[in-house]
């Protein structure tokens, strides 16, 4: 019989970084799979997810926040919400966690050769986008420009803050057509960038749909308005991508609950082009 898809492997937490101090705490974990054979087999692509777990507590599907070009470790940004994610937040560097995957489809990066990439993220939605951003930065020659549009409620809720600031200010990246556009929803002392919701920042920036791909991840209501604004800016359905999330248990298309229409988000998603998404009967 083939291998047991429910059997998780152990992974060591190399380091933990607390991303946010706002209402919702997010921590980014760098993990390394212990078993060498499984580690080598675990070849993810940007957009994919994995089941993180603690034996005796449970498992939770988390998107992989690092690029496959990073061979050292895998990043997972976890928001403390339910039983499992709360238990994961209790862990310390050096502790063991379990992992199985990678699961789901991925962003079709092969089809985006020399395209301008625009990522539009909100809150923890930046996690799956970060895998693309890192990938594009690492393989910059294969892509055109990169615009990183990202916002959160307050500065305390912004993920990957230092990374974003560094890229934003880097002359090296500016020369290579990489721009960062950060925003927060409400004004704060010392914030000199855009104040307002992400869809508004998008409208203000007016990225050109010419030879571009826009990828958006974030709260459902943000995605809704980002897509609306992208369409208004002239983007075609096929140029817009997003990721969906739903409650998941198995991660392999059997337990039933994550379906949107006839698709299982765990297996057939999480990445959906708007061309595919708009024909689904329910939007998750």
């Amino acid at each position: 019989m083939t291998e047991n898809p429910y059997l998780p492997r152990r992974a060591k937490i190399e380091s933990i970084k607390q991303e946010t101090t706002g209402e919702r705490i997010i921590k980014t974990f760098a993990v390394v799979i212990e078993d060498q054979a499984y580690r080598e087999r675990f070849q993810h692509k940007p957009g994919q997810c994995a089941m993180l777990g603690i034996n005796g507590v449970g498992e939770s599907m988390i998107s992989i926040a690092s690029s496959p070009t990073n061979k050292e470790f895998l990043n997972f940004s976890v928001m403390k919400l339910g039983k499992v994610t709360s238990a994961i937040h209790e862990l310390e560097a050096g502790d063991l966690i379990t992992i199985r995957g990678p699961y789901g489809n991925n962003f079709p990066l092969d089809e985006w050769y020399q395209k301008n990439i625009i990522t539009i993220g909100g809150g923890i939605g930046q996690a799956p986008l970060r895998s693309i951003i890192q990938y594009v930065l690492d393989k910059k020659g294969e892509f055109g420009g990169l615009d990183i549009i990202y916002g959160a409620r307050t500065t305390a809720d912004l993920c990957y803050r230092e990374d974003h600031f560094q890229t934003e200010q880097s002359v090296f990246w500016q020369r290579r057509n990489v721009r960062v556009h950060l925003s927060i929803d409400v004004p704060e002392a010392g914030w000199d960038r855009f104040v307002g919701v992400v869809p508004d920042n998008l409208l203000r920036l007016k990225p050109s749909p010419e030879n571009a791909i826009a990828i958006t991840c974030g709260p459902p209501v943000m995605i809704k308005f980002v897509i609306k604004n992208l369409l208004a800016l002239g983007f075609k359905d096929e140029q817009i991508y997003t990721t969906l999330e739903n409650r998941m248990k198995c991660g392999i298309g059997k337990c039933g609950r994550c379906n949107v229409g006839s698709f299982y988000v765990c297996k057939d998603g999480p990445v959906f082009s708007y061309a595919r998404l708009k024909n689904l009967p329910e939007k998750g």
Binding site: G58, E59, K249, C255, G256
Partner: peptide, 17 residues
């Protein structure tokens, strides 16, 4: 119908999935 839940349960000190 085949939908299922996965739960880790601890009974008398032993945990199962």
């Amino acid at each position: 119908c085949h939908c299922f839940d996965i739960q880790d349960e601890r009974v008398r000190g032993r945990a199962n999935r």
